[in-house]
Each structure stands twice: as C-alpha cells, then as structure tokens.
Write a protein that binds this DNA or RNA. Structure first.
Lengths: 209, 209
DNA sequence: ACCTGAACACCGTTCAAGT
DNA sequence: ACCTGAACACCGTTCAAGT
C-alpha cells in the first residue's frame, strides 16, 4: 500500500517536519525532538530542515505554537457546551486544560518550559499564547457583566486564573496531585476542586448572625 | 548529608561539580548544563564526573534537589517573620516563591520542568520536593486550627496552594505577568493579589442584609 | 528554489590504563 | 579508589554541489 515516490522536492516539507516533530514528541519525549531524527522520519537529509527553519529552536517554537492553537480550540469547544454561569465556564476550562495536559504531557511540558517564549524572537508563538489568554479574559469579563465575578481588572484576574490552570496542569502531569487524581473521574475532581477554591477562596468567611 | 569539608580539586569533586553546575546554570542557562563544560570549569577530565554521577540526568537531579532545599530554607525563614495569621503566612510564602523564581530563573525552570521527577529514579529529589510541600500543609493546618481556613483535607488544599504558587512563579519568570510586575514593588504586588484571590475567591458574594 | 553529502565542532558515555 | 586519554556514536549547523 505504501508507495515510495521519492521526488527530489518534498513539496510540503515544512508541515511534514512539524507533524513528525509532534509525533516524535508524543512518542518518545523531548529528547527525541532533534532535527536529525525528525528529518530521518520524514525521509530527507539532515540539512533539509534548514531550508524551512532557522535552527532547532525555531522548529520547537513552531511545534509549541501548534500546541497552543490546539489547546485554544479545545477550550473554545468546551466553552460552547457550558452554560453562561461563570463558575460553569471556569470549570469547563479547567477540565479541558487538565485533560489536554494529561493527553499530551510532553507537548505541554514543552509549551510550559518557556525557553522560547522568553525571547520574543518568535512573534507567532507569542500570538498563540495570547489567543489562549484572551479566552480567560473573556470568561472573566462575562462573569463580571453577569454579576458573578468580583470587580477588578479582568486581565489581572485572568492572569491569576491562568496561574492556577498552569499549576494544576503541571502538577497533574508530574503526578504530584495523587491521590486526588486517582480513579475514573480523578482528573475532573481535581479540576473542579481547584475551581471551587478559586471561586470561593480558602479563607473562612464569618457567618454573620 | 554533610561530608568532609574540603573544597579542593581532589577530595570533594562531587560537591565541586554541583556547585559549578549551579553557577553555569545561573550564568548561561540550561544549555550550559552539560557534563563536559561542568568538568572543564572544575578542571577535571570529561570522564571524571562519572565517578560521582551515573549520567547527566543524575547531576541535574542533584542540582534541582539543591534548588528545592534552598527554596525550603527561604520559605522557612520568611514564615518565621510572619504573624500567625493564615493570610499573612500565605502571603509570605507567595512573596518568597516569586522572588526566588525571579532571582534564579534558570534553576526554577529546571526545577519545574519535571523531566526528572517523573521517574522516581531520584528518591532524594522526591524527598526535597516533599519538604517544600510539607510546609504548605502545615500552613493550611495551622490556619484551620485557628479558624482562618475552611475545613477540608489539608493536603488537597495545600496542593491547590502549590498549584497557584507554581503558576504565578512560572508566569512571572516568563514575563507573562506584565504589566502587573513592573515597578519597584511589582513582584510583591502580584504575589499579594494572587493570595488575596486564593483567600477570598473570585466569586461575587451576596451581601446579605 | 529546494535538497543532498560531506564536513566541522561538540557532547554523552565507555573503557583501558595511569596514579 | 579516583582520575586521564582516547575512542565511539551521535547531534547541530554550514556549505559547496546537485536537481
């Protein structure tokens, strides 16, 4: 079934490299994400990728960028199935975030390692992270409009939400959330619990008489 | 785990390698954390480190472990200067966490990358992270005893606190918290703000008459 | 314009041999 | 017992030459 037409020109090498990199990352972790191996899998020479990416970092940045866009898509589709209650939406996002991390641990680790984000050498990547961040800002704003979320700069509140999501996803991947993540609905439980805390706080409120 | 005090090239190569690794990491980032370069800086051959560490990962795990112990010490000393109010303590921890991350960005990135924690090949490292986690559990428990923190499994609540700290530290390092971190007290401001949210929640509470 | 082949510098790791 | 020197396999990157 598999033909091996090996034209001198690949045709879509750039996308093929991104795809192969994504696969290698998922299969064998970050150490497999090296240019020679990616080139090998695609069936081109080790030098070929340099026609499409400045260096290894640039390929990784593009792969991570793709990761952020995928995450954004997942979140958007989860939000469409949630009610317009702020808490419900927070919950949907948290569940999506943690599941995405669990399903793509190596990709998310690469996304969160941030080595590339630091240098603003990759504007497209920066754009992709902003797209996700913007979804949080919108949730907060809608919640404020409906009187469900406290007043305050939506971007500041969104940053705190982002921090929380970032943290629970990371700790879940690293298996630091056990035993709360065990069992069939464990991952959902920790997401729900975290959002409940974020929503209501850990401080004990006075029961006024 | 103290050994003979002898920071000379001959007798204490193990500690010399850890120290050099810490320095290289701080100076030049993760890419500088390679065995040959560490060996070079200490003034031994490239093969010498293998007498003290199984491989490169083992050296990194030890360096990261040292990072967790340093962080634990910082937190402990901050807690001693805080009052016995739960909120005050949460705040002290958050400030310490974020400052530590800002002062040691590469070390913290390595600590959070978690590639090593996943494999429980490094029990000492696991131990070091537990030491930090335990400090959070204690804060939560004290807060509950004083009626300042809501009821619930202290370990679960501590995990949520940990997630929050993890997230704000990461986003601060990656400069995703701007513009809230700008200015002289910016870093403290974002820590305080985050803890206020964690304590009181983002949900709008009804003002009962 | 896009890709190959060979080359260079460098790293992780091993091992026989030195002290 | 601890360290050196040489060696092997492999990776990032470059560049002249091929299609």
């Amino acid at each position: 079934m598999r033909e091996k037409p090996k034209p001198y020109h690949h045709g879509d090498l750039r996308n093929a490299l991104i795809q192969a990199g994504l696969e290698l990352l998922a299969e064998s972790g970050a150490s497999a994400l090296d240019l020679r191996q990616v080139a090998r899998r695609v069936g081109v020479s080790s030098a070929a990728p340099y026609r499409h990416f400045a260096d290894r970092q640039a390929l990784i940045a593009t792969i991570v960028e793709e990761g952020y866009y995928r995450l954004a898509r997942h979140i958007q589709s989860a939000l469409q199935q949630a009610s317009d209650e702020a808490f419900d939406q927070l919950n949907a996002v948290a569940r999506t975030y943690v599941h995405f991390a669990q399903d793509n641990p190596w990709l998310v680790r690469e996304m969160f390692s941030g080595l590339t984000i630091e240098h603003e050498t990759y504007p497209d990547l920066h754009q992709a992270t902003k797209a996700v961040y913007h979804l949080y800002v919108e949730i907060i704003q809608r919640g404020q409009e409906h009187g469900q979320v406290i007043a305050g700069d939506p971007r500041a509140l969104a940053s705190v939400l982002w921090s929380m999501l970032h943290g629970i996803a990371t700790l879940t991947i690293e298996h630091q959330m056990r035993p709360y993540t065990d069992g069939p609905e464990g991952i959902d439980r920790i997401a729900l619990f975290s959002m409940q805390i974020l929503y209501d706080g850990v401080g004990r409120k006075e029961r006024d008489p």
